[in-house]
C-alpha cells in the first residue's frame, strides 16, 4: 500500500474535522500534560509497555481544558482489559502490535514513541490513524484502531470522560423525545 504523506494525512484529517486547523497554539495545550503513571502500578505491562500505552492513549485523548486519558485512568483500564479479558492469543497480538507500532516509530523518527515531544507524538499517531483506517477494509483489524477503541471506551466510561467531555445523567427522570440540541449541549455518554 502506498505510504500516505504525513502532511497530506493531517490535511485530510483537518478537512474531515470541518476545517479545524492544527495550529501550534492548539498543540501547545498538550504541553505540560506529561502522562504520569503515579496512581497506576502496572502488573502485566513492563515499564516500556506502560510508557508506550500511557503516551499513546494520552495522544489519542489528551488533557486540555478537560481531563485526558491519563487523568481518567485509561492506561490502567487498557492493561486490565488486555490482562483479564483478552484470551492469551489476543493478549499476545496486542503486545506484538504495541511493539511493532514502536518499531515503526523508531524506524521513521529515530526515537521510541514515548520519547517524542507531544507534537511529534500527535503527528506520528495521526498518520498511523489514517493509515489504519485506510488499511482496515483490505487487511482486517488494525492494532492502532484496536488501541484507539480501547482508549475511547476506557475514557468515555470513566467519570471525567462521561461527565466533563460528554454529558451524563445518572437518573434522567423524564424522557423528552425531541428537543433542541442546546438543551443537552454535548453528546450523551450513555
Amino acid at each position: 500500500m502506498e505510504r500516505i504523506d504525513r502532511k497530506e494525512a493531517i490535511k485530510r484529517t483537518a478537512l474531515l474535522m470541518g476545517g479545524v486547523v492544527f495550529a501550534p497554539s492548539i498543540l501547545g495545550v498538550l504541553k505540560g500534560c506529561t502522562p504520569s503513571t503515579d496512581r497506576w502500578q502496572p502488573s502485566l505491562f513492563n515499564a516500556k509497555q506502560a510508557a508506550l500505552v500511557t503516551a499513546l492513549s494520552e495522544t489519542i485523548i489528551p488533557a486540555g481544558e478537560t481531563p485526558g486519558a491519563t487523568d481518567a485512568g485509561v492506561p490502567g483500564f487498557i492493561e486490565s482489559m488486555v490482562k483479564d479479558i483478552y484470551t492469551e492469543e489476543q493478549r499476545d497480538l496486542f503486545l506484538e502490535g504495541l511493539a511493532s507500532f514502536n518499531e515503526v516509530c523508531e524506524d521513521e523518527t529515530g526515537k521510541s514513541f514515548d520519547r517524542l515531544t507531544s507534537e511529534e507524538m500527535f503527528e506520528f499517531a495521526s498518520i498511523k490513524n489514517v493509515e489504519a483506517i485506510e488499511s482496515e477494509p483490505l487487511e482486517g483489524p488494525q492494532f492502532f484502531l484496536l488501541f484507539k477503541e480501547l482508549t475511547m471506551v476506557g475514557f468515555f466510561t470513566s467519570e471525567p470522560g462521561a461527565t466533563q467531555v460528554l454529558r451524563y445523567e445518572d437518573i434522567p427522570g423524564i424522557y423528552q423525545a425531541c428537543i433542541p440540541f442546546e438543551d443537552v449541549g454535548r453528546t450523551w455518554a450513555t
Partner: peptide, 17 residues
C-alpha cells in the same frame, strides 16, 4: 474510532452527536 482524527480535534468532534 474510525474518524480521521485523534487528540484534541477528536475530543471536540465527539462532543457533538
Amino acid at each position: 474510532v474510525r474518524e480521521l482524527a485523534i487528540g484534541k480535534p477528536l475530543k471536540e468532534f465527539i462532543q457533538t452527536p
